[in-house]
Design a protein around this nucleic acid. Structure first.
Length: 899
RNA sequence: GGGCGCCUAGCUCAGCUGGUAGAGCACUGCGAUCACACCGCAGGGGUCAUAGGUUCGAGUCCUAUGGCGCCCACCA
């Protein structure tokens, strides 16, 4: 059969979807719990069902897929478990917006209707992101896809909740929490984002009862004064200590409140007097507990003033603030106003200002869970990559607070608790109870749901079937590695470690690779408001998934942010084209008689014919071996940028620039199909095959497409073996010899260009080889040198002719000797002299540097022997080179002496 | 206030355990030679933020300073 000639430029359109469905159809993504192979498992950081693929996802999924494809090709039983997170607040936010557009709120619908709307939305839009992931080429096991609100996962959540409650680790209580007045739910400390805001500091006069004096105190939130139940001063503050025990009249409310002493007050801040609003400030809440002060709630769950706010009842909190300031001013109770830069907490999801609020919530006691989780990281059972991220982890874990796990939302896991209003009993159990076991009274079901991160914490084992002891759970837990962003170390990573240790008795993963944040080319965070968002799918459409993947991988230095550059991506899209054209060239020159030879077959060839195989063949096999090892070493350490660079440099600058150039004459010769040509072609095809395997985890689509067009054995590249070290191919001598030849070619090319020779000039070259051992190698390779340096002829001479007596002109030196070209008088003597002098100067500088080292007896006595030897060797080499260079220069009239 | 990280070629960045400063892009010159102009060949460009220190030897380790960034805490 004759090979098809492929398109001149690589076009990923169409072919990516085709290969993706092929892989899926062939079931290559599926893991097998019964496989005898060693397992490698990863659970996906489940994207929100509300999500749409952004650069951060693209990065993470690319890195996952590189690892997963690499391990699969290495013969592991690989599970990459995909799924989505129900993201309760995010879904609420989306649906709230929709309802708002219709002039409604979720409360108009009621819980039941809202939930059916949510499920409907999930069915329609929840899978978008997973399909977007497919476009990137991710090889997840879709048959094991999970959703955090699946029946199985919901059972796991309920089970964990009940067990924790029964153990006394979950409790319910009334505390001050972060309340979002827009989402109308409590949120955890982690969900509060502090932002710097230029606000005001209002200084207000509180009249002292029984005196004509005032106390002046400062506040950023005057509306909360309506709920003040005390003012506080530092007990040792000489200005005010004698007032402690007295009272002030609370302005606007005409209520007397006590003056108390508490050492939390900072005497140096403002006037040193603090108003105490226990119901609306976390610090004041604590103070009130210490001093048994009453709490007066003046702001409700929507952020409006309550009846407790008297005349201000019903106003929005910010409107109330304005009114109060006006009124204070009109009553001469406003002493002054200052601009004040401070941090204000905002809801992570909807950006509303957080309102601290006292309410009844469920909490998880985390201290006993945190201890073993800290130990797991301290002992190295869980390793962070890069290591420095464990500091963040420790910092948070050592100061961990109880976790407020209840939310006043509807979409999520309902807390399995029932209350008896008759006797006040609280039941927490797996199944719904009929009636109160104590008084037979009616039961009221808890309406709160759990924080989304509660179910996420169970993800590594709930997705595998826990609490059932499923084969999947036994086979794939613990997983091998977690790849995620730095922003969810606390939200997710820490909590998974705690829950994994608690319920599986083992960590959920052994390594946590923290990737950077993808920024725009100017290092700015991408955001809708800045309008600098780069859509990964748009890039995929434009440049192909392979180019996008390779770009992300090549920039993924562990722990550092990625300034995504379109220029750079264009470069990698050019790389894809390069790979394509290398294949194109090979295919064009096959006649269809060639067949695939296995790696073992090539090894056998090497064993039998080692001495007669051409140097470049031995060299390319040696390099393939080294590069394969390098890529695996780098991937083992999550050094994706290094692995990418290895395959890129190898393929472009060794395979294409040297190897293909070297075998061009063989390839384009159609003779001798059964002889040495056949052997050489099989080595070429093998090198191509192995290069494609090495590249496949990074660029799965183009490599599959090419591989399928080349002679091959097997159904798909993605299930071929990833190249591993084959010691028989290791041949450092061949590599060194090749390097010497390259150097010669480079020296000749350089001389041609720098002396402004006509590129079409047909030149003959003569050269000397200093090292006798090298002479045979060079001799045998003269044809290669001739072709690569574009010479008409080249020959070795014992000594080069004097410039004056021949048309040959000494042109330069290379590692092994000198060379001359027949320039037939066309030489620019000045130009040649200048370039030789330039080379001499830089050589002299180098010699000088190394000489200082070698002459230093401290260096000789203290540096390791091999370093000293290496420097001596190098010094001798440079001196020899200098000798040759000066010899050349001496023949040029007008050359300076040069020292 | 506490902690972490960064500062290397015009730009964006590599340089892991100290031992001859690298890549991509950009730039300059040459080249339509039959895989690729999304290309080839050759070339220019760096006191590795600054100042000290350790070391035979520092981009790499230590200290300080300056600039930039991130995380945590969140004093009204």
């Amino acid at each position: 059969m004759s090979r098809e000639v492929i398109e001149k430029a690589y076009d990923p359109t169409g072919l990516e979807r085709r290969w993706y469905s092929f892989w899926e159809r062939e079931n290559y993504f599926a893991a097998d719990h019964a496989s005898p192979k060693p397992k490698f498992s990863i659970v996906i950081p489940p994207p929100n069902v509300t999500g749409s693929l952004h650069m951060g996802h693209a990065l993470q999924h690319t890195l996952h897929d590189i690892l997963v494809r690499w391990k699969r090709m290495q013969g592991y039983n690989v599970l990459w478990l995909p799924g989505t997170d129900h993201a309760s607040i995010a879904v609420h936010y989306v649906l709230d917006k929709q309802l708002e557009a219709e002039g409604k709120s979720r409360f108009d619908l009621g819980r039941e209707q809202f939930l059916s709307l949510a499920w409907k939305w999930k069915a329609e839009s929840g899978g978008i992101i997973l399909n977007q992931m497919r476009r990137l080429g991710v090889s997840c096991d879709w048959s094991r896809e999970r959703f955090t609100m699946d029946e199985g996962l919901s059972n796991a959540v309920k089970e964990v909740f009940v067990r924790l409650y029964e153990e006394g680790l979950i409790y319910r209580g009334e505390y001050i929490v972060n309340w979002c007045p827009r989402c109308k739910t409590a949120i955890s400390d982690l969900e509060v984002a502090y932002r710097q805001v230029l606000g005001k500091l209002w200084f207000i006069r509180y009249p002292i009862i029984g005196s004509s004096q005032h106390l002046v105190l400062a506040t950023t939130r005057p509306e909360t004064m309506l709920g003040d139940t005390a003012v506080a001063v530092h007990p040792e503050d000489d200005r005010y200590r004698n007032l402690i025990g007295g009272q002030v009249q609370l302005p606007l409310m005409d209520r007397p409140i006590p003056i108390i002493g508490d050492s939390f007050v900072d005497r140096d801040f403002a006037t040193g007097i603090v108003k105490i609003t226990p119901a609306h400030d976390p610090h004041d809440y604590e103070v009130a507990l210490r001093h048994e002060l009453p709490r007066v709630t003046v702001i409700d769950e929507s952020g409006r003033m309550t009846p407790g706010a008297g005349a201000f009842a019903g106003l929005d909190r910010f409107e109330c603030r304005r009114r109060i300031v006006d009124q204070l001013a009109s009553e001469s109770l406003l002493a002054k106003t200052e601009e004040y830069l401070h941090n204000v907490g905002h809801c992570d999801r909807c950006a509303s200002a957080i309102e601290p609020k006292v309410s009844l919530q469920w909490y998880l006691k985390v201290e006993s869970l945190a201890k073993p989780a800290i130990a797991a990281v301290e002992s190295g059972t869980v390793r962070f990559v890069p290591d420095s991220f464990k500091n963040r982890y420790f910092e948070w874990m050592y100061n961990i607070h109880d976790w407020c796990i209840s939310r006043q939302l509807w979409w999520g896991h309902q807390i399995p608790a029932w209350f008896c209003d008759a006797c006040g009993d609280v039941l927490v159990q797996r199944d719904k109870p009929e009636a109160c076991p104590k008084c037979k009274g009616c039961l009221r079901e808890e309406t709160d749901i759990l924080d989304t991160w509660f179910s996420s914490a169970l993800w590594p084992f709930s997705t595998l079937g826990w609490p059932e002891e499923t084969p999947d759970l036994k086979t794939f837990y613990p997983t091998d590695v977690l790849i995620t962003g730095p922003d969810i170390i606390f939200f997710w990573v820490a909590r998974m470690i705690m829950m994994g240790l608690k319920y599986m008795g083992d960590v959920p993963f052994h390594q946590v690779h923290i990737n950077g944040i993808v920024r725009d080319a100017n290092r700015q965070k991408m955001s809708k408001t800045k309008g600098n968002i780069i859509e990964p799918l748009q890039l995929v459409e434009e440049y192909g998934a392979d180019a996008v993947r390779f770009t992300l991988s090549s920039m993924a230095v562990p722990g550092t942010d990625i300034p995504f550059s379109t220029d750079r991506m264009k470069g990698y899209s050019a790389f894809a084209n390069k790979v394509w054209n290398a294949a194109r060239f090979v295919l064009m020159n096959l006649d269809g008689s060639e067949s695939h030879v296995s790696a073992e077959g090539i090894d056998e060839l090497l064993r039998q014919k080692a001495l007669s195989l051409p140097l470049e063949d031995i060299w390319i096999l040696h390099r393939l071996d080294e590069v394969a090892r390098g890529i695996s070493d780098s991937l083992e350490k999550f050094r994706f940028h290094e692995a990418s660079s290895l395959i890129y440099q190898f393929f472009w600058h060794e395979f294409c620039d040297w190897y293909i150039e070297l075998i061009k004459p063989v390839l384009t010769t159609k003779e001798d199909p059964a002889g040495p040509r056949a052997e050489r072609i099989s080595i070429l095809l093998h090198a191509m095959d192995y290069s494609l395997r090495l590249l496949h985890p990074f660029m799965p689509f183009i490599t599959e497409e090419i591989w399928q067009k080349m002679p091959h054995s097997g159904r798909s590249l993605m299930v071929q073996e990833f190249p591993s070290a084959r010691t028989i191919r290791s041949n450092p001598d061949a590599a060194r010899a090749m390097q010497v030849l390259f150097d010669l070619v480079l020296a000749v090319r350089s001389a041609r260009t720098e002396m402004n020779l006509d590129p079409r000039a047909e030149l003959d070259a003569r050269l000397t080889v200093a090292e006798p051992a090298m002479r045979a190698t060079v001799e045998e390779s003269l044809d290669r040198v001739r072709a690569l340096a574009r010479l008409r002829s080249v020959a070795i001479a014992e000594a080069l002719p004097e410039t004056s007596e021949d048309v040959f002109v000494l042109c330069g030196i290379w590692t092994q000797g000198e060379f001359a070209l027949n320039l037939a008088g066309a030489i620019d003597v000045g130009a040649q002299r200048r370039r030789l002098e330039k080379e001499r100067d830089s050589l002299a500088a180098e010699i000088e540097k190394i000489l200082r080292k070698v002459n230093n007896h401290e260096f000789r006595s203290r540096a390791p022997q091999e370093v000293v030897e290496e420097n001596r060797r190098r010094h001798a080499e440079l001196l020899e080179r200098m000798g040759r260079l000066e010899g050349l220069l001496a023949q040029f009239p007008g050359a300076d002496s040069g020292e």
